[in-house]
Design a protein around this nucleic acid. Structure first.
Length: 270
DNA sequence: AAAGACACCTGGGAGC
DNA sequence: TGCTCCCAGGTGTCTT
């Protein structure tokens, strides 16, 4: 269930097992992911030691001396840490077998995720041109205002544009816009700097909160059945069309924007 | 430049 | 119980 908070939660979950680990083997059972798993990926990392673990946008990067394994969870992917002896489940496509006896196992029913390789000192084309990370200073009101200034695109589209800011998926775009009181369909260039500043803040807050709560499900995640169950309690608009707004009790409205469910309060969001 | 359709793929839930 | 249809957290490409 990967939006950025889930990816960050995944990173934190596998980190203790992957830090400085040595890879005994990589097993690719199904290379047909969003992009094919490179044929030579296993050979590149077998016997190698992990020297770092990072996240960029919704990509996880496992660093080795010669380069990095890049993992994206797509819509339905997840990574679990299991014992070597753990029986395979359907859609367990890739295993990274560690010398500790643990296995980092990639499962992805829809196969929209990917497992790729980038040589050290190069940047994979998937990572080129990505905008600032939302939880860093690089993403700020000035940058958003600049992007919005000459754009009549709906604001929701703008904040989901990876060139403007990475990692804001459909759920959190809806939530942040609600918190900021901005209607998702409003043209970006018709929003005051003050309100864009508020939106910038709310994006950071909503993502940070979700990460904090995702952290509470870390145990589940590392164990056998890793589903973060936080969002039902937390979400104020996503998945709540037709229900009363938590602020004013007006019924929440749903529209489609670029094919994505978009929910807002017609009263609180203008 | 950007909106929109379509693509990749499986599974779960609703409705009949 | 089972069939059909619609929907889903992402994101890349192609057409208007």
């Amino acid at each position: 269930m990967p939006e950025l908070p889930e990816v960050e939660t995944t990173l934190r979950g596998v980190e203790p097992f992957l830090a400085n680990a040595t890879v005994d083997a990589m097993i690719v059972r199904e290379p047909r992911l969003r992009w094919p798993v490179p044929d030579d990926l296993a050979a590149r990392i077998e016997g190698q030691q992990v020297v770092g673990l990072r996240r960029r946008a919704k990509y996880l990067l496992v660093d080795f001396e010669q380069g990095s394994v890049i993992v994206h969870l797509g819509m339905s992917g997840n990574l679990r840490v299991v014992d070597k002896s753990t029986p395979l489940k359907k859609h367990d496509h890739v295993d990274m077998v560690l010398s500790s006896g643990k296995v980092v196992r990639f499962n992805d029913p829809r196969r929209f995720g990917c497992v790729l390789w980038q040589d050290k000192g190069t940047e994979h084309e998937r990572l080129l041109g990505l905008g600032p990370e939302p939880l860093t200073e690089d993403f700020n009101a000035e940058g958003l205002a600049k992007a919005a200034k000459n754009s009549s695109r709906p604001i929701k589209q703008l904040i989901m544009d990876n060139k403007v800011v990475v990692g804001v998926g459909n759920i959190y775009a809806n939530e942040a816009l609600f918190k900021a009181g901005i209607r998702p369909t409003r043209p970006a260039n018709k929003i005051s700097k003050a309100r864009l500043t508020s939106l910038t803040d709310e994006i950071k807050v909503v993502l940070a909160k979700a990460i904090a709560q995702g952290g509470t499900t870390l145990k589940d995640f590392v164990g056998s059945d890793g589903k973060p169950g936080y969002f039902q309690q937390t979400l104020q608009v996503y998945g709540r069309a037709g229900q009363p707004c938590s602020q004013c009790t007006t019924l929440l409205k749903e529209v489609r924007m670029s094919g994505r469910a978009t929910v807002f309060c017609p009263e609180c969001q203008r």
